[in-house]
Amino acid sequence: MLEEVERWLADRSWSVADRPVHRLLAAKRATGQTVSVVLPALNEEATVGGIVTAIRQELMLRVPLVDEIVVVDSGSTDRTSPAAASAGATVVHRDTILPRIPAVPGKGEVLWRSLLVTRGDIVCFVDADLREFSADFVSGIVGPLLTEPDVQLVKAMYDRPLGSAAGQGGRVTELMARPLLNLHWPRLAGFVQPLGGEYAARRSLLERLPFPVGYGVELGMLVDALHLVGLDALAQVDVGVRRHRHQDGQALGRMAAAIYRTAHLRLARGHLVRPALTQFERTGAGFEPRTHPVDTEERPPMADIAEYRSRRVA
């Protein structure tokens, strides 16, 4: 590991316990910063309401740390939107945001569009499939942004059990993202959960970043933020244990392909790579190939969008 990363781990890796909520509230009042929490959601009826309830009760009603909770529904066919709304979130459908640009499927697409329907100086992203959720996930990663003026982006770090096996979650992280980062961006090798969906950043940074539309968004954001603001502006906070719904092997393969493509674009833009992934399913006649497209489209920095710029002027 690079000496720079060892120093960074000592200086920019914290625990949620390092910043009690009363300290965060004092910093929030002193700086006047506002906080938005965004949950991208697709068919998360079973969990989204509980997450919204925990954040609202602990960080809005009990203490005024969070200013708004926005759930962006990307086309759920279950009761995700009613569940989120009844728990107290503002619910917005992806397709109603920036209708001039037709929406495409993908998590990154939803996160990018969320910048247009939130107001916070700090934007905190939380996946909507978390179980046994604690509001510490939010206060933990928002904390350094309220108390450390030089910090621009904060990732959550945590244990990720797979069933009863401790530390065995995050298979795409270990098999794809971590090798890529260590080989090509070794200054990012200190991130425990580089692909984790829980992170917070200053709006002033997010609006300058391109957003891969699919599962490459977390890796792309981390790499681009490194180049834009430097390693010392990035940080991570230990928030405990993350439990969520796990994907099957083929879905993980599609995620890995999208992440590899995101990395490749940043390593050598302009090279031709076939953006498709062929997987195999057993049928009565043997193994049948199934070819899936890999997300390659990215949205430009939100600061380049006329509707966003006009809203800021207004």
Rank of each mutant, 00 (worst) to 15 (best):
A103E: 08
D136N: 13
F125D: 03
A135T: 13
R178N: 07
V123A: 02
D129S: 11
L116V: 02
D95I: 08
L115G: 09
D121T: 10
C124R: 05
A135E: 14
V126N: 03
V92Y: 05
Q152R: 10
R178E: 12
T147A: 14
V117M: 08
E109A: 06
A87S: 13
K107N: 08
A84M: 05
D150H: 15
F137D: 01
P179T: 06
S164C: 10
L180W: 08
I101F: 13
A103Q: 11
S134Y: 12
R160C: 05
F133E: 15
G140W: 11
S164A: 15
G120A: 07
V172D: 00
V123R: 08
R178C: 01
D127P: 10
R119V: 02
V117F: 07
D95N: 10
G167K: 10
L146D: 05
F137S: 00
K155R: 15
A135L: 09
A128E: 03
D136L: 12
W185H: 12
G163C: 06
L188S: 06
R100W: 09
R131T: 14
P144Q: 09
V154G: 03
W112F: 12
G169A: 01
A156S: 13
W112S: 05
E109K: 00
A166V: 07
C124W: 07
H93W: 09
V142Q: 01
M157Y: 03
E132C: 10
L183Y: 05
L146C: 05
M176G: 03
Q152P: 00
L183S: 12
I141F: 02
E109W: 06
L130D: 08
D159E: 14
V104F: 01
P149K: 08
K107Q: 09
R160Q: 09
L130G: 02
D159M: 09
Y158K: 03
D129F: 06
W185R: 12
L116N: 09
R94E: 13
A89G: 10
L162V: 01
P105V: 01
I97W: 05
D129L: 03
G106S: 06
R171K: 11
F133S: 08
T118K: 01
L145V: 11
P186L: 04
E109M: 14
E109Y: 02
M157D: 11
I97A: 03
T173L: 09
P161N: 11
A156F: 06
G106L: 02
G108T: 06
L188P: 02
H184L: 13
M157R: 15
R171S: 10
D129I: 04
S134D: 15
K107T: 12
A166P: 09
P82Q: 04
P149Q: 11
